[in-house]
């Protein structure tokens, strides 16, 4: 797993088309936004290019220099936001913070490095702004970023699964047909895209009680199994 921003030069159509995606591993193109400038750190904007949002990463390809492009994986994007305050940045943009390998370093040093504009070390870039010429697209882009960020949870979490929700009883009875890959959390109604304001405290208590019932059911089933063995 490589953190941070990196160069991206693999284009279709002999180097002039869109990005070549890792479709073998399920990468899908979610959205293309033409006429987008990119701002790395405190450097001047680089224009114009096309923004490609895929299910795994954000790719920007220059329209001017066909050899120029940048990409960052969604799991390296710590934060993204819609910035419309001219004091924060003159043009409305999507503001992102990038978690980089060199994140422990002193921020101020790094920014002055970027400002001097001598050598750009992409792995040290911690801020990126994407400035679409059509500012009315900002909210749509923001929502797409949110959607894709959710498609990319922490890799570690994914490997471990959610085994911790199983009780010892359940683990002992793995052969009883219980799906060990059962995902407790995969409830599409809990997507972050939805406002959850209708869930009051009572609702939470109810939810927790429902969960408890699930465990009780499992125990009852275990007891049933035991009695059938006797």
């Amino acid at each position: 797993m490589v953190l941070g921003l990196r160069e991206f030069t693999q284009r279709t159509g002999e180097g002039v088309g869109g990005p070549i995606l890792d479709t073998d591993n399920g990468e899908e193109l979610m959205r293309v936004q033409p006429f987008v400038s990119i701002v790395l750190g405190n450097r001047p904007p680089e224009s114009h290019g096309s923004l490609y949002i895929t299910s795994k990463q954000v790719i920007w390809l220059s329209d001017v220099d066909r050899a120029k492009g940048y990409a960052v994986d969604f799991f390296s994007l710590s934060l993204h936001a819609v910035s419309t305050d001219p004091e924060a940045y003159p043009s409305p943009c999507i503001y992102t913070q990038i978690e980089s390998e060199a994140d422990d370093g002193d921020d101020e040093d790094e920014e002055s490095d970027l400002e001097s504009g001598e050598v750009l070390d992409l792995s040290k870039v911690t801020e990126m702004r994407l400035v679409p010429s059509d500012a009315s697209q900002l909210d749509t882009l923001f929502e797409m970023f949110c959607k894709c960020a959710e498609l990319n949870p922490e890799p570690v979490e994914e490997e471990e699964g959610h085994n911790w929700v199983f009780s010892a009883d359940q683990l002992e009875n793995e052969g009883t047909g219980e799906d060990p890959g059962w995902h407790f959390f995969q409830d599409p109604t809990n997507s972050i895209g939805h406002s959850n304001g209708d869930h009051d405290l009572a609702n939470t208590v109810l939810r927790l009680q429902i969960n408890d019932q699930r465990f009780e059911d499992a125990e009852e089933m275990d007891q049933g199994n035991d009695s059938s063995h006797q």
């Binding site: 799991f75 710590s78 936001a81 305050d85």
Partner: peptide, 24 residues
């Protein structure tokens, strides 16, 4: 949103809405 330490992060003075990755 607004940044608490505005002296340190002046450019993030205000953003309209903000998505923060749980792991950070």
């Amino acid at each position: 949103t607004r940044v608490v330490d505005q002296d340190k992060y002046p450019h993030m003075l205000s953003v309209r809405n903000c998505f923060i990755r749980g792991s950070v």
